[in-house]
Design a protein around this nucleic acid. Structure first.
Lengths: 192, 192
DNA sequence: TCCACAAACTAACGTTTGTTAGTTTGATTA
DNA sequence: TAATCAAACTAACAAACGTTAGTTTGTGGA
């Protein structure tokens, strides 16, 4: 009976809210907007959630922690640096396919986290440091071209972090194909 | 006496506002925030600008039109497709260095354009189509690897559009070096 | 049948929002 | 000196904001 649980009303509100957040951003979405999308009155939302801010925290921190544990699994395996980069590409694709709306909130509304802002920034910073170390290690060991580490890092992260933006356009995505195409482009380049 | 004009009060407000928009987003910035940053009262802003919305339009449309004319210049020259991609990388770097705050508004707040939204989307769509055609042409002529055109397009655009995010971290940037590193990564890849 | 409880409701609150109207100030020009 | 004008001000507005309090409704178990 694994994963047969029905979505609670709270989870439903958070899911609907994250869809609205994706379109207009956290600040431009009102509790009355969320309520209308749920077909109820704004005050009724508070039977299920504590505050607007709590919705944002739930959305963003769940994903941030998913990235953190994903990175931990990548580092746990004894793979080459390039294989690790491939695994990270797959991680980003998987999360983007599963929850593009949540990723939108994470990418564009993280600065509206209040009490949890520092915690989020810590997770993001740790993640970037781990990513950076893999690239730097690859350069040291002559597996990756000797280009500015920061430029490589942010070039890869920019693409991977923007996946949520154009992934929905493609209807049902073949996750494996997309991962392979991205790996090809990000690692081997496009020049023939 | 070229380019000796002093910044008008209106331009100053728009510049200050775009800096605030970059940090918190258009919706989360109030006219009183802008006023405080200008060291005046909110009502006084209206001696110089017509509305909050007009500020956003000024910021975004100026940049969008700069991309449009930049693309036109790239297409005007009789270059190879790969050379054209290089020129577009240089275009994005140049605009990002000149006006990272404005680019932030364009990338994250374009959906809050009201009357001008359709016009903006038309410019963006045209730009993407031109970019896409260059890549498709390169594949047809065997200059670019035969990978899904959409994946290549959005991989490149994601990186170029995110430049404003991490460019300020690097202090004074050597525009030429950055352009070359990016071209290397985006076109030749990072694998050795 | 009665009770409990989840989940909706109405009504209202204090605050903040973008914006307008009318006024004052201080420097430049006639 | 008097007139002009850009650019600031004070005061206020109606609307929208997140949220709270207290109440009603409908369903399932004792």
């Amino acid at each position: 009976m694994l994963s047969m649980k029905k979505e609670t009303r709270k989870q439903e509100i958070i899911r609907v809210a994250s869809k609205l957040f994706k379109n207009k951003g956290y600040s431009a979405v009102t509790m009355r907007d969320v309520a209308k999308a749920m077909d109820m009155k704004a005050a009724s939302l508070y039977n299920h959630i504590n505050s607007k801010q709590a919705i944002l925290q739930d959305i963003i921190l769940n994903i941030a922690e998913e990235f953190t544990s994903g990175m931990a699994m990548v580092l746990a395996k004894d793979n080459s640096n390039v294989e690790r980069l491939n695994a990270l590409i797959a991680l980003h694709v998987r999360i983007a396919v599963e929850n593009p709306e949540g990723l939108a909130a994470l990418n564009t509304d993280w600065m509206h986290l209040e009490e949890k802002l520092d915690y989020y920034l810590q997770l993001r910073n740790d993640y970037e440091n781990n990513f950076r170390n893999i690239i730097a290690n690859g350069i040291e060991n002559n597996q990756i071209k000797s280009i500015d580490v920061e430029v490589i890092l942010f070039s890869m992260l920019s693409t991977l972090r923007s996946l949520y933006l154009w992934l929905p356009k493609k209807g049902t995505v073949n996750q494996k194909d997309l991962t392979e195409s991205l790996a090809q482009i990000l690692i081997e380049g496009i020049n023939k």
